[in-house]
Simulated scan of single mutants.
Amino acid sequence: MREEEKLSNNIEVKGLAHIGIPTSDLEKSIAFYQDLGFQIIVDQEGMEGNNFIFMECGGVIIGLPQSLDETVRSQAGTKGDGNIDHFALLVDDLDKTKKVLEEKGVPFAIPGVSTTEAWRPKSCRCIMVYGPDRVKIEFVELK
């Protein structure tokens, strides 16, 4: 990629926000990650079609959504080896990030800006794009 095409010149990534790992059995997943030292930091039931658990260990945050739809839930882990849905990067200015991605023609996985109540009392806005090989990358602004 030529220097003038680099996204990093215009997007200021602060760090990894979380890794999203859909689960078919939330309690089993919680127990597994707790055995590794992860602690629950967010527990939201029935939000956006999922029960959401976010867990943290050593600064690494994983999101464990369990779909309320039994058909969708049964498909968790069926993509082959592993089932990481996306990774999320922290940014300070989501509007600027969105504009840069649009200008570069990066395809959006979900149109527009989404919000979630998962991080209450903080405000959370995010966008989701496709990277190479259709890897989903979420950009998250927490305030």
Score class of each variant (00 low, 15 high):
residue 85 D to L: 14
residue 8 S to Y: 09
residue 76 A to R: 13
residue 121 P to M: 10
residue 93 D to M: 11
residue 18 H to L: 02
residue 111 P to Q: 09
residue 18 H to V: 05
residue 102 E to V: 14
residue 132 P to Q: 07
residue 132 P to F: 05
residue 133 D to I: 07
residue 92 D to N: 15
residue 19 I to P: 01
residue 79 K to R: 15
residue 4 E to A: 11
residue 25 D to I: 05
residue 33 Y to A: 04
residue 96 K to H: 15
residue 41 I to D: 00
residue 134 R to I: 03
residue 65 P to V: 10
residue 14 K to L: 11
residue 21 I to L: 11
residue 97 T to G: 07
residue 92 D to E: 15
residue 129 V to F: 02
residue 133 D to F: 04
residue 119 W to K: 02
residue 44 Q to Y: 00
residue 31 A to T: 12
residue 41 I to Y: 00
residue 38 F to D: 13
residue 28 K to E: 12
residue 26 L to I: 13
residue 89 L to S: 07
residue 74 S to N: 12
residue 124 C to Q: 12
residue 4 E to I: 07
residue 17 A to F: 00
residue 6 K to I: 03
residue 137 I to F: 01
residue 76 A to E: 13
residue 56 E to M: 02
residue 104 K to P: 05
residue 90 L to W: 09
residue 87 F to R: 06
residue 13 V to K: 02
residue 4 E to K: 10
residue 9 N to K: 09
residue 19 I to S: 05
residue 121 P to T: 13
residue 87 F to P: 03
residue 69 D to H: 06
residue 117 E to A: 13
residue 44 Q to K: 14
residue 17 A to M: 00
residue 48 E to A: 06
residue 105 G to W: 10
residue 109 A to G: 07
residue 107 P to D: 11
residue 58 G to P: 01
residue 64 L to N: 11
residue 35 D to H: 09
residue 52 F to Y: 11
residue 63 G to R: 01
residue 81 D to M: 14
residue 131 G to E: 04
residue 105 G to D: 12
residue 60 V to E: 06
residue 36 L to W: 02
residue 80 G to T: 15
residue 106 V to E: 07
residue 34 Q to G: 01
residue 108 F to D: 12
residue 75 Q to L: 13
residue 7 L to W: 02
residue 139 F to I: 12
residue 130 Y to F: 15
residue 69 D to L: 11
residue 112 G to T: 09
residue 47 M to F: 01
residue 126 C to L: 09
residue 44 Q to D: 01
residue 140 V to M: 10
residue 111 P to M: 08
residue 45 E to L: 05
residue 24 S to W: 03
residue 125 R to W: 03
residue 1 M to C: 09
residue 65 P to R: 06
residue 39 Q to L: 01
residue 28 K to S: 14
residue 41 I to C: 01
residue 54 F to K: 01
residue 136 K to N: 11
residue 89 L to G: 07
residue 96 K to I: 13
residue 98 K to Y: 14
residue 22 P to D: 07
residue 80 G to H: 14
residue 46 G to C: 00
residue 103 E to C: 06
residue 130 Y to H: 14
residue 7 L to A: 09
residue 9 N to E: 11
residue 26 L to Y: 04
residue 99 K to L: 13
residue 40 I to N: 01
residue 123 S to R: 10
residue 91 V to A: 08
residue 106 V to D: 04
residue 35 D to K: 15
residue 2 R to P: 03
residue 26 L to V: 08
residue 91 V to W: 05
residue 41 I to T: 09
residue 121 P to N: 11
residue 67 S to G: 12
residue 103 E to S: 14
residue 90 L to T: 10
residue 79 K to F: 10
residue 36 L to R: 04
residue 41 I to E: 02
residue 143 K to S: 15
residue 56 E to I: 01
residue 81 D to K: 15
residue 96 K to M: 12
